[in-house]
């Protein structure tokens, strides 16, 4: 088809492969290096012998992290957050996208409500008022502060709304003739044929909830309520000396700080790595095709 073999072209092809291979290596190298650090002995890690492969392989830093109650508790908070937040996000996306996907003849207030949701994407309230409202409504320090204020992912709503709108009208007309109401049409007809977009919406919500750390950091008064990423922010990035106990100090003598940090980073990555194949499959097509409508 595009065959055109000159010597210059062959040289280009070789060079192209080399450039792309180097690029890929540069991208993955930092992650592999940290993985290697987490599996190396503390002396090897601190003396700078570790590059891409573990030196003096051992699992000490992982067993150390697994004995750390703060880490485990934070992991639990994150799991709870995902378990509550994702179903709420998906349910809200479905029941908001459906009315907005109706034709104007079926739902007169459609334009009004569409703008009602869209405006929140264009104009944000700002950090301080947002914090004050959550404080005034009494959600501070509760898991619901991480779930309720962002219960409606507007971008996902638009994605699913566009998908619903493209479903041919014959589908629902037949059901409508049989006396089916909106709930039946949504649940029995629309949802079963929307699984790819629902997968995108679910993954989007999963990633957002797992990765969020800033809300946990400022909305939780007590560090024991921090989700994992907020906890990691305080111990890896902003080391707060008041939160290090004598027990931690004693244990740190046995295992190196560098290897334990690396182990925590790796453990926090595991859920993302597990869903990564699905992310690759559903994220791109869903986002590109649904978000940008030409």
């Amino acid at each position: 088809m595009r065959l055109n073999k000159s010597r210059g072209y062959t040289a280009f092809l070789v060079l192209n492969h080399i450039i792309l291979a180097i690029l890929a290596v540069l991208c993955i190298f930092p992650i592999l290096h940290v993985a290697a650090l987490s599996l190396s002995s503390s002396t090897a890690a601190s003396s700078g012998k570790v590059v891409l492969f573990p030196v003096e392989f051992n699992l000490k830093s992982y067993t150390f992290v697994m004995q750390n109650n703060d880490f485990l508790r934070a992991f639990g908070v994150s799991v709870l957050r995902v378990a509550l937040g994702v179903p709420i996000n998906v349910l809200m996306t479905i029941i908001v996208a459906y009315p907005l996907s109706r034709k104007k003849s079926q739902f007169r207030a459609k334009t009004f409500f569409t703008w009602f949701f869209l405006i929140t994407m264009l104009f944000g309230g700002g950090l301080i008022p947002w914090y004050m409202i959550i404080r005034e409504t009494g959600l501070l320090d509760s898991i619901w502060a991480l779930v309720i204020p962002n219960a409606i992912p507007v971008f996902s709503v638009i994605l699913l709304m566009n998908y619903f709108r493209d479903i041919p009208a014959e589908f629902e007309e037949a059901a409508y003739m049989d006396g089916a109401g909106h709930w039946t049409i949504l649940w029995k007809i629309f949802l079963p044929i929307s699984t790819p977009t629902l997968a995108t919406v679910t993954l989007f919500s999963l990633i957002t909830h797992w990765n969020s750390w800033f809300d946990g950091l400022i909305l939780m008064n007590s560090p024991t309520n921090y989700p994992l990423q907020s906890y990691m922010q305080t111990i890896i990035i902003n080391i707060d000396p008041t939160r290090i106990t004598q027990r931690d100090l004693d244990l740190l003598k046995l295992v190196n700080e560098k290897t334990t940090k690396s182990a925590q980073i790796l453990i926090a990555m595991i859920p993302i790595i597990c869903v990564y194949p699905f992310l690759q499959k559903y994220f791109t097509t869903g986002l590109v095709l649904g978000g940008i409508k030409g």
Binding site: F107, I128, P129, P149, I152
Partner: peptide
């Protein structure tokens, strides 16, 4: 149209408080 309003109701309340609230804030 009533079912459509019922579907939107919870989301509208949450958005009024946590998205429009901060704008007024």
């Amino acid at each position: 149209e009533l079912p459509l309003y019922i579907m939107l109701f919870p989301a509208v309340i949450i958005m009024l408080i946590y998205s429009y609230g901060p704008m007024i804030g």
